[in-house]
């Protein structure tokens, strides 16, 4: 009985956000003190299909930005983690990798903003991309660092001894061995960028309207239905990733 009650409470606790966001998205003219919306409508969802829909554009922008960050940070992190593992200054470089990842994203954005302005990247996708990579690249590098152990080097040497070219060793030995970690790095750096609001908002000066920036704008305009739809769209990709690979969401560098 007690365990059923606990399960019910936890289901209620974690299910309620989706229920309320769903009601806000489909409810029309829902004002205090009504406990439920007087009218339900799918208009907001229908408008998503319109070609000039701002939310859909925001979704595309966020997907493109997060996807680019994930691929660039994971590929870069893989190569850099190996170089750091073999460097004489490995400990120093590893410690340096914690620096941007350790600061809150909005504080990091505030600190680097003068340089982003001097590079003429303020308010541009390029500036936001650079800011996000500054956090995601060291994160991926630290996450993939433990892959480059002595055993991996031995596998690589063995492949080379057996006649593999460096490219063959990379494609047929190292990448398949590293795939579980690469997948985790891809997922986590994607989410890092997907969830970000503070850094994007500061560096883009509100001009790069990703989904999180749109949620904030709609909240500011007291447009709860659109904020709810944008919130539900924000939850979609992580939900797909959760279904594909749960463990990739949890691993920390």
């Amino acid at each position: 009985m007690r365990s059923r009650l606990l399960a019910f409470l936890l289901i209620l606790l974690f299910g309620l956000p989706f229920g309320l966001l769903g009601l806000l998205a489909v409810g029309e003219g829902w004002r205090f003190p009504a406990a439920l919306p007087p009218v339900y409508s799918l208009n907001v969802f229908r408008s998503l299909l319109a070609a000039d829909n701002d939310l859909l554009a925001g979704l595309g922008r966020s997907l493109l930005l997060a996807g680019t960050v994930a691929v660039a940070a994971t590929a870069g992190g893989f190569v850099l983690a190996r170089a750091i593992a073999r460097s004489r200054r490995a400990a120093r470089l590893e410690a340096a990798s914690y620096l941007p990842y350790a600061l809150p994203p909005v504080l990091l954005a505030v600190l680097i903003q003068p340089f982003i302005i001097r590079l003429h990247l303020s308010g541009s996708v390029g500036g936001v991309l650079l800011g996000l990579l500054l956090v995601a690249l060291p994160f991926a590098t630290l996450l993939l660092g433990s892959f480059w152990s002595g055993q991996t080097t031995e596998y690589e040497h063995l492949a080379r001894t057996l006649g593999c070219t460096p490219r063959q060793a990379l494609r047929q030995v190292l990448l398949p061995l590293a795939w579980p970690r690469l997948r985790t790095a891809l997922v986590q750096t994607f989410l890092l960028s997907w969830f970000d609001f503070g850094l994007t908002n500061v560096l883009s000066v509100g001009k790069v309207r990703t989904l999180t920036v749109q949620v904030f704008t709609y909240v500011g305009e007291a447009n709860a239905p659109l904020a709810a739809v944008a919130s539900l769209l924000l939850v979609l990709p992580p939900a797909v990733l959760l279904l594909v690979n749960k463990s990739a969401l949890l691993r920390k560098p």
């Binding site: 309620l16 956000p17 309320l20 966001l21 806000l24 997907w194 969830f195 609001f197 999180t212 949620v215 904030f216 909240v219 709860a224 904020a227 709810a228 919130s231 924000l234 939850v235 992580p238 939900a239 959760l242 969401l249 949890l250």
Partner: peptide, 15 residues
Amino acid sequence: LLLPALVVGFYLFQF
């Protein structure tokens, strides 16, 4: 883990 902090903030404000 699926919920961005901003969405949780918006949800709790509405709740």
